[in-house]
């Protein structure tokens, strides 16, 4: 028999692969990016140390600030209708009388697992000015006379990107809300019934208050994900006046289209700090509301 100390050594061996791989493919590139953010590097010649020049440039870069604004606008346009729709559907699908629950759940969730790149291409085709099926449909139904040039308008373009995101994620959030609703103790509903509460009172006095932690959790995870929006908007494009260029798209294009890798590394760190601030603020606000 081995001693306990001897055995505990194995625990250490078992967890080491994680750290070795993380050091090589996770931490080292992050630290190397930090170094590169203090250099000027075009990808062909060697990086040249330039101190804080990239960060100074970033503070005066209107396109970067525009990309932050775009990301926020797209996020708000997608999260607000997304949460409302998810909540309404979750409450409906929690009803006992309903048939075909599994079917509806599966259909609503399906867009969530489709490749975001593919969805970006699909929506850019569907919302095309002359050839898109959405314009064909609206004209055929007589809702509009002339096809709408969706992707030529900054705000319509943002709304379309937000629609893709909303369409992809409302089903996931709905499942999370359904789980939250099912964890509410059955006695509360029964008590409400005994007290003669109607459906709306049950929704607003029992379901929504008890669902608040789940709602907050969803908001926080969606901020972190929303700030990193990339795949689908990249396929839809920068938009008129760069109106749909998100932060990560700007990072990507600075490096791999304009070959300005040093500056791009600085953008990566700026995005990281923005995400960090948002996460801390939302975690703090969640902690405060719990008190």
């Amino acid at each position: 028999m081995k001693t306990a100390l001897d055995r505990s050594r194995f625990g250490f061996y078992f967890v080491t692969p994680f750290f070795i791989i993380f050091l090589i493919f996770g931490l080292a590139p992050i630290l190397y990016s930090l170094y590169l953010s203090f250099t000027s590097w075009d990808g062909f010649t060697d990086p040249v140390f330039v101190g804080f020049a990239n960060y100074k440039r970033l503070l005066g870069d209107t396109l970067f600030f525009k990309s932050i604004l775009n990301t926020m606008i797209i996020w708000i346009f997608s999260i607000v209708p997304q949460l409302i729709l998810a909540l309404v559907l979750a409450i409906i699908l929690n009803e006992k009388f309903l048939r075909g629950k599994n079917f509806f759940r599966a259909v609503y969730y399906f867009p969530n697992i489709v490749t975001p790149v593919t969805l970006g291409v699909l929506f850019s085709l569907m919302f095309d000015w002359q050839t898109g099926s959405v314009n064909h449909l609206l004209v055929s139904l007589g809702i509009i006379d002339q096809p709408i040039y969706w992707l030529n308008s900054p705000w319509l373009s943002r709304i379309i990107v937000a629609t893709v995101i909303m369409w992809q994620y409302f089903g996931f959030n709905m499942l999370v809300f359904i789980a939250g609703l099912q964890s509410i103790p059955q006695e509360l509903y029964e008590a409400a019934e005994v007290d003669g509460a109607n459906r709306l009172q049950v929704i607003f006095k029992i379901m929504l208050p008890l669902l608040r932690p789940v709602l907050l959790f969803t908001m926080i995870t969606s901020i972190i994900g929303g700030l990193q929006l990339f795949d689908a908007p990249l396929m839809i494009g920068d938009g008129p006046e760069n109106s749909t260029m998100t932060m990560v798209m700007y990072l990507y294009e600075t490096a791999f289209k304009n070959f300005n890798y040093g500056y791009s590394a600085a953008i990566a760190y700026a995005i990281f700090i923005i995400i960090l601030i948002f996460s801390i603020v939302s975690l703090k606000s969640q902690a405060r509301k719990k008190d």
Binding site: A4, R7, S8, R9, F10, G11, F12, F14, V15, F18, F19, F22, F25, G26, L27, A28, P29, I30, L31, Y32, S33, L34, Y35, L36, S37, I224, L227, Q228, F230, V248, L251, Y252, A255, Y261, S264, A265, A268, Y269, I271, F272, I275, S279
Partner: peptide, 29 residues
């Protein structure tokens, strides 16, 4: 298993989840 530094190492694992994927992408390239 109980080994030295286990708790700190586990916190390290959890905190790597908070790092956005594109932070190190230029360095990785």
């Amino acid at each position: 298993f109980n080994f030295k530094g286990k708790d700190i190492l586990f916190v390290c694992v959890l905190s790597t989840m908070m790092i956005p994927g594109q932070l190190g992408i230029i360095g990785l390239y």
